[in-house]
Design a protein around this nucleic acid. Sequence first.
DNA 1: CCTGGCACTCGGACAGGGCGAGTGCCAAAC
DNA 2: GTTTGGCACTCGCCCTGTCCGAGTGCCAGG
Lengths: 339, 339
Amino acid sequence: MLSERRLEVLRAIVQDYVGTEEPVGSKALTERHRLGVSPATVRNDMAVLEDEGYIAQPHTSAGRIPTDKGYRLFVDKLAGVKPLSTPERRAIHNFLDGAVDLDDVVGRTVRLLAQLTRQVAVVQYPSLTRSTVRHVELLSLAPARLMLVLITDTGRVEQRMIDCPAPFGEASLADLRARLNSRVVGRRFADVPQLVQDLPESFEETEDRGTVSTVLATLLETLVEEHEERLMIGGTANLTRFGHDFPLTIRPVLEALEEQVVLLKLLGEAKDSGMTVRIGHENAHEGLTSTSVVAVGYGSGDEAVAKLGVVGPTRMDYPGTMGAVRAVARYVGQILAES
Amino acid sequence: MLSERRLEVLRAIVQDYVGTEEPVGSKALTERHRLGVSPATVRNDMAVLEDEGYIAQPHTSAGRIPTDKGYRLFVDKLAGVKPLSTPERRAIHNFLDGAVDLDDVVGRTVRLLAQLTRQVAVVQYPSLTRSTVRHVELLSLAPARLMLVLITDTGRVEQRMIDCPAPFGEASLADLRARLNSRVVGRRFADVPQLVQDLPESFEETEDRGTVSTVLATLLETLVEEHEERLMIGGTANLTRFGHDFPLTIRPVLEALEEQVVLLKLLGEAKDSGMTVRIGHENAHEGLTSTSVVAVGYGSGDEAVAKLGVVGPTRMDYPGTMGAVRAVARYVGQILAES
DNA sequence: CCTGGCACTCGGACAGGGCGAGTGCCAAAC
DNA sequence: GTTTGGCACTCGCCCTGTCCGAGTGCCAGG
């Protein structure tokens, strides 16, 4: 176990390094922080911290920089979540209140997060399976062609074409539409499969039964498809702040960010409630081993319907970033609840 | 007017520079191209080309690189559009045929273009105003709350919430829905405003008339809003291939790419038919003065409903890029026509 | 008008030296 | 036992000077 002062030294190192982006030495530390001890003492502490793997030297005769393990300790034990300033809060409200629909909410959230944290922002659309059904609509576009429209309580709209084996009478269609709605409206999408399982059997005319099955099949398919998980990213220009050496660093990050699958997995690994911080090598993906991910769930109620977060260099301002992410998530939740 | 051989020299310079990314000298030119003259002659030609502003030296005693004006001449007079290879064509078909809905088509197109050209791809969603109406739907979500859903022939779906001043009876709703559809289905969105102008007056009951006006107002607003112009970009990781000096280059480009407004303007400036190539400083936006944009319209019929293209360094393979962009645009058009 | 020759110019790569930040260790002080 | 000041040492970085070669412009001759 590390002594109180050693933890304090680690904290100081992290703070300075995040601020200056340069390895920090013992002398500079004592000058910029009131540690109450001399550089020599700090040197001893640093040696211990290095032995334990919390900090490292890029090369001999340079200062120390925190390792992933060091950041981990910092985040877990030493850092709080820095609340946003009043102007920042106001900015969030002003900016998000103007949104007109879900796409707009998500788009604004991404831009806002990117701007507040000066990092890459990732926002997942409210997941279908965790939302509840507000309305199901079946539109007849052509004799044997239907469009299925699903509307969630979070304002998300999903549509899918259905080619029916046979034409569908307007009356049967209205009937099916009504039955569908009466069964599923207000229910969670995850529960829909069971709720509609026996629907085809309640139709007596065999001719329609096939069509009903087709419609339901598409409905269920829409629900389970991984395609349902959409997301939006923004602030990639902030990657250029990484460092001077970064051509090699930025490449894999951009590539990872283009793979929605990777990002979804990243967000998926985050805890449902509470904030998750993954630092450097804790991220499974290879291109992201020198980045950290701060993610949190958000939702219209107390339950998370999706996640959002930021991706940035491991050398980031954790308290500030966590504060911004949390504040934005909360307010987006409110917005969704209201709409 | 430049002699035939000087043009040939310019072509050779462009080709070599695009290939090697390094300034090209007179000796190297005669070695790699059968110009039939000596380096000294080429030097004289180069001097002329430089006087005329087609090429420049980064510094004394370095080879020449093409200027924007040089690329312009190359594209206009010296380069054709390189047709894709058969495997490439097959790749396009295979990749795009699997798309399930419009989002998917656009998403796949972006990835495809980015991969084929190894550059940043931009694809605009089919514009509303240039599409025709396939269906208009009004859903009653709550007593005084409607959802307006617009479906285009290109498969695009747009929805908007409407808060009505007063509840709306189911019968009136069906009535309005029917009237709306009978008037606008099959018409171009641009013509919708005139077509529905007098709708409120045809309703006699004053109570509903206000609501009808509200609905129509939202409908029209949805049509004109700039929000209608969505787009998707991809392949930003290709920016890292720019050059070794690029931290300063890549930054403004990423920033420009994040501004949808900028991109839309960029695509908007492209001609409706035929391919448009904007080179370096021809782009109004400041961050894009060292990039070129190759854009082309695409559509389900002969008319363009939107545009797509790529953004890359001025030093790009124009014939190949133009070939890929054109081929992809054509096939996307076919896909949209079929769906 | 083309060609070979030649002097000239620079930028880039390389090597060497000095500087300074930072360290580790040690003996003395608290 | 912990802290402290002192001190020798290590290296990375920066600056400078030098060399090399690619590429040019010009000129006289074919």
